[in-house]
Amino acid sequence: MRFLLDMNASGALLSLLLDSGHDVVCVRDVDRKMSDSEILNWAVRERRIIITTDSDFEQMIWLQARQHCGVLRLENLPRSERMSLFEEVLSSYGQDLEAGAVVIASKQKIRIRRS
């Protein structure tokens, strides 16, 4: 899968994705001050799924009808809990993400919104 990690995604998540053979790019490697709008444009241009803890992307998608290629918003949990949550989402909802869904994952529940 092709991912774009937002500034708030952990280095441990980057390592996990790369070790699993995914194609991953990071905002922090390009421009730490890049706006969410620019990040969304980049993800669409390269057909990448955004991983973030930030709800701003959902607002742009639903309120501004912005194009996207999938977003995974993880609850901002301690690193080990966030990693477990990510692995659960990827194994159970990876196809939804690849199909362009917005997945909102917290410890309590996982919501999937399809375009």
Rank of each mutant, 00 (worst) to 15 (best):
I39A: 12
L40Y: 12
L40M: 15
N41R: 07
N41K: 15
N41D: 13
W42T: 02
W42Q: 05
A43M: 01
A43R: 01
V44R: 01
V44H: 02
V44M: 02
V44C: 12
R45G: 05
R45K: 13
R45I: 01
E46Y: 06
R47W: 01
R48M: 03
R48A: 06
R48K: 02
I50R: 03
I50V: 05
I50Y: 02
I50T: 02
I50A: 04
I51V: 04
I51K: 00
I51L: 05
I51Y: 00
T52V: 03
T52F: 04
T52L: 08
T52Y: 07
T52S: 14
T53P: 05
T53G: 11
T53D: 07
D54A: 15
D54G: 11
D54V: 01
S55F: 11
S55L: 15
S55K: 09
D56Q: 14
F57Q: 09
F57G: 04
E58N: 15
E58D: 11
E58Q: 15
Q59E: 08
Q59M: 14
Q59L: 12
M60H: 15
M60D: 13
M60Y: 13
M60S: 14
I61K: 11
I61R: 09
I61D: 14
W62A: 14
W62L: 14
L63G: 15
L63P: 07
L63Q: 08
L63D: 11
Q64F: 12
Q64E: 14
A65S: 08
A65N: 14
R66C: 10
R66V: 06
R66E: 13
R66M: 13
Q67S: 14
Q67T: 12
H68C: 08
H68G: 06
C69S: 10
G70P: 01
G70H: 01
G70Q: 02
V71K: 04
V71N: 05
L72M: 06
L72D: 04
L72R: 02
R73I: 05
R73N: 07
R73C: 09
L74A: 15
L74M: 11
L74C: 14
E75L: 06
N76G: 05
N76I: 00
N76S: 12
N76K: 13
L77E: 09
L77I: 04
P78Y: 11
P78I: 06
R79A: 11
R79F: 11
